[in-house]
Amino acid sequence: MKNISHWIGGAEVEGSGRTADVFDPATGEVSGRVHLASVAEVDAAVAAAAAAYPAWRDASLVKRSRVLFRFRELMDAHAGELARLISAEHGKVHSDALGEVARGLEVVEFACGIPHLLKGGFSEGVSTR
Rank of each mutant, 00 (worst) to 15 (best):
V30P: 04
L98Q: 12
V62E: 12
L105V: 08
V93T: 04
E109I: 05
K63W: 00
A47P: 05
G120T: 11
E124S: 13
L68E: 08
V108K: 05
F69P: 04
A97N: 04
G113R: 07
L117N: 03
S127V: 10
A55D: 11
M1G: 09
A50G: 01
H94Y: 14
M75T: 05
W7H: 12
V108L: 14
F23L: 15
S31C: 13
L36M: 13
H78G: 06
S5D: 11
P54F: 10
D76A: 13
E73F: 08
L68W: 10
V108N: 01
G104T: 05
H94L: 12
A20P: 05
A77V: 06
E81S: 09
S127P: 05
K63V: 12
H90I: 00
R64P: 03
G80P: 01
F23T: 14
F122W: 12
V107W: 04
G113Q: 04
E106V: 01
A55P: 00
S60Q: 05
E100R: 01
H78E: 15
D58F: 01
N3R: 12
V93K: 00
A45S: 14
R64T: 06
A47G: 08
R129K: 13
E12F: 00
R70Q: 15
F69W: 15
V93R: 07
E41Q: 15
R57W: 02
E73A: 13
A20Y: 06
W7F: 15
F110R: 10
D21T: 09
I8M: 07
G99E: 02
L36K: 11
R72C: 06
V30I: 14
I86W: 01
T19V: 15
S60H: 07
A52V: 06
L118A: 13
E109A: 11
L36G: 06
E109W: 04
V42E: 11
D24H: 12
L36V: 13
A111T: 09
W56A: 14
D21M: 03
H6I: 02
E100I: 05
E109G: 11
R72A: 13
L82W: 05
F23N: 05
A26K: 07
A97R: 00
G99L: 08
G28P: 00
R33A: 10
D24L: 05
S38C: 03
G91T: 06
K63M: 02
L117P: 01
P115L: 09
V22T: 10
R18F: 02
L117D: 06
A55C: 00
N3A: 03
L36W: 07
V126S: 09
F71Q: 11
T27F: 01
A45F: 09
V67Q: 07
P115Q: 02
G32D: 02
N3V: 10
G28K: 04
W7I: 01
D76H: 15
A79D: 10
G15E: 06
V126C: 11
V39F: 00
E73G: 14
E73Y: 10
K2M: 11
H35M: 10
R33K: 12
A59Y: 02
H90G: 02
A52Y: 09
T27M: 03
C112W: 03
G91Q: 02
L105F: 00
A47V: 02
